[in-house]
Amino acid sequence: MTESQNLLDNAVQGSNLSFFYEPSQWVFQDLNFSFRKGAINAILGLNGCGKTTLLKIILGVLKPKTGTLKRFGETAFVPQIFQAVFSFRALDMVLMGRTRHVGLFSRPSKKDELLALKAMEKLGIENLALRPYPELSGGQRQLVILARALVSEAKILIFDEPSSALDLGNQVLVLRRMRELSRKDSLTVIFTTHMPQQALSIADEVLLMTAQNSFLAGSTEEILTEENLENVYGIEVKLLEVEKDGKKTKALISLFPDV
């Protein structure tokens, strides 16, 4: 692939990124990766390896200490299940996604309100519009925050450990939504996870963050091999192929050998 094609194809590109909160305690160093436009990109790694920090750098909330990060398009953020301090209505929460389109001293217009409702409708949660956000269930909250990201019209959606606090059924629902957004709406999806299964299920590309200075980036096939996963997690794993209705799915199981 040539350099110019690269630029056209990439949604986010990081080169030689390093970051620390306290000097001399690197969260990561010399991180290189590129996330393709319209693809689903997973950032996979152990707890505390700097996934969320990297997300904040991609969002522009934190600045890298070295290296450069290029974004080709606006980003919208879907945090982990969001604890609100104030009890805004769900509709108000979604409307906040329009903030970039609202002038400094103005408020969202009727049009913004309609767009917010449309986004909620798309996710099937328009009936929650007037409910106080804190009273919603975890799955409902995640969808409200997703609607907030959609209504911003950003082309790059960034999820921080989506569904990590949800039950299995809701997890799969959220992952399916993410895949739809990539395949049908051509949005770029970037998400962090510490569960390899999630990356296996939907990701096209994976950035596997292992230890401070080592990382692997590439297609899901290339990166999520039994060998790599065993190295990262330090356990025995097995990748299985499951076939249903002629379609293949990969499943990951960890082995518990008899003692």
């Binding site: 904040k56 969001f82 805004f88 903030t99």
Partner: peptide, 13 residues
């Protein structure tokens, strides 16, 4: 309103 969501959220919005 947006700022009252917290720093990271507000910044990302």
């Amino acid at each position: 309103n947006v700022l009252s969501l917290g720093d990271t959220d507000a910044a990302s919005l």
